[in-house]
């Protein structure tokens, strides 16, 4: 997901307060920033929302890679609108994280020096135009499956951010499917691009949900706190079940020979992604990790004079206003 393998913190708070807090969550109440909350709940949420925000920001890069090469004015406009939405999602999410007592600049510094992560998916390259369809359809499609239930998450600001994000994400997934459909139904060269995109992005998309919950040490506490709503495997299965018929509709080959309908389970069987590749990507060894982080660091460093200049001007303006009063 946009937040993967978020480490949850054990709580060392007063047991009575903890029990009362859990009771509020169990009753479906929203926790607001000024309410009492366990230290672990706060820390876990900062990590999760921060990682989600960083994913939106870094996620601009693989799509930005094709904005200047979009093949029509309409496709260029759609892609610009989508990337603009993603930067906007980053902004809501940083704002939600700030209500927990961490600043956007602090979170940014942690992204830039590698202390915080972003989704593994954005460390894969976008190599042909069909990737713009596949990213919207598969990547945003996978993200939606996680984000729809997060609209009901226990932390109020995160829940409200997710409600806004989900509205835009469903447009992203639809435009992605529309773009790849044009390719799948197009010339042999376009069809080849579409197949290449699906083949390359299928397993990385499955990895977005994180490793199997059987191996996940962080799920139980986060699920009790309702900051994680479903298990990774549940969501991954849901993704496979909804996506396989779409691949067939597009008349593209399935990207995994292990995909088969299982009558007994009422679900598609599928092959597990190569988890050693996933852990390599998480450790920084994905195809684009170094370049993505370097691009963000360069933008931040090159922009220092701009941020300093605007801040200095705002201070001068305030001082002039003060002097005039």
């Amino acid at each position: 997901m946009y937040a993967q393998m978020v480490k949850s913190e054990a709580s060392t708070d007063d047991p009575e307060k903890l029990a009362a807090f859990q009771a509020r969550i169990d009753a479906g109440e929203k926790i607001e920033p000024k309410d009492w909350m366990p230290v672990g709940y706060r820390k876990t949420l900062i990590r999760q929302i921060g990682q989600h925000a960083h994913s939106e920001i870094v996620g601009q890069l693989p799509e930005g890679n094709w904005i200047t090469r979009a093949p029509t004015l309409e496709r260029k406009a759609i892609l610009l609108a989508k990337v603009q939405d993603e930067a906007g999602h980053g902004l809501y999410l940083y704002c939600a994280a700030e209500t927990l007592g961490v600043s956007r600049d602090e979170l940014t510094e942690m992204l830039l020096d590698g202390r915080m992560k972003y989704s593994s998916i954005f460390n894969y390259p976008t190599l042909n135009w069909a990737d713009m369809g596949a990213v919207g359809w598969l990547v945003d499609g996978a993200a939606i499956l996680n984000q729809v239930p997060l609209q009901r998450t226990s932390f109020g600001p995160y829940s409200r951010a997710m409600i806004r994000v989900c509205k835009e994400e469903s447009f992203h997934a639809r435009q992605g499917f529309d773009a790849i459909r044009k390719m799948a139904e197009g010339t042999p060269a376009q069809k080849k691009m579409a197949q290449d995109a699906v083949n390359r992005l299928w397993f990385p998309a499955l990895m977005m949900f994180g490793p199997s919950d059987a191996d996940s040490v962080h799920s139980t506490q986060s699920m009790a706190w309702k900051i994680k709503m479903n298990t990774n495997d549940e969501l991954r299965q849901k993704f496979v079940d909804q996506t396989v018929p779409q691949i067939e509709f597009l008349k593209l080959d399935l990207p995994d020979p292990g995909i088969k309908w299982n009558e007994e389970r009422g679900h598609y069987d599928y092959s597990d992604p190569d988890w050693s590749e996933f852990f390599d990507v998480i450790k920084g060894n994905g195809p684009c990790n170094t370049d993505r982080l370097a691009a963000r660091n360069k933008a931040w460093k090159d922009g220092q004079w701009v941020r300093d200049g605007l801040l200095a001007h705002a201070r001068k303006k305030a001082a002039r206003k003060h002097a005039a009063e």
Binding site: I57, Q60, L61, E63, G64, I67, T68, K76, A77, L80, A81, V83, Q84, A87, G88, G90, L91, Y94, R104, A295, K298, A299, W300, D302, G303, Q304, V306, R307
Partner: peptide, 22 residues
């Protein structure tokens, strides 16, 4: 302007530049 996508000095400028290009 669209060449800036993802490389602006601050998030608000990324949004504004994409909006202008759009």
């Amino acid at each position: 302007v669209s060449e800036w996508c993802g490389h602006a000095p601050v998030l608000e400028e990324d949004i504004a530049l994409a909006n202008t290009a759009l």
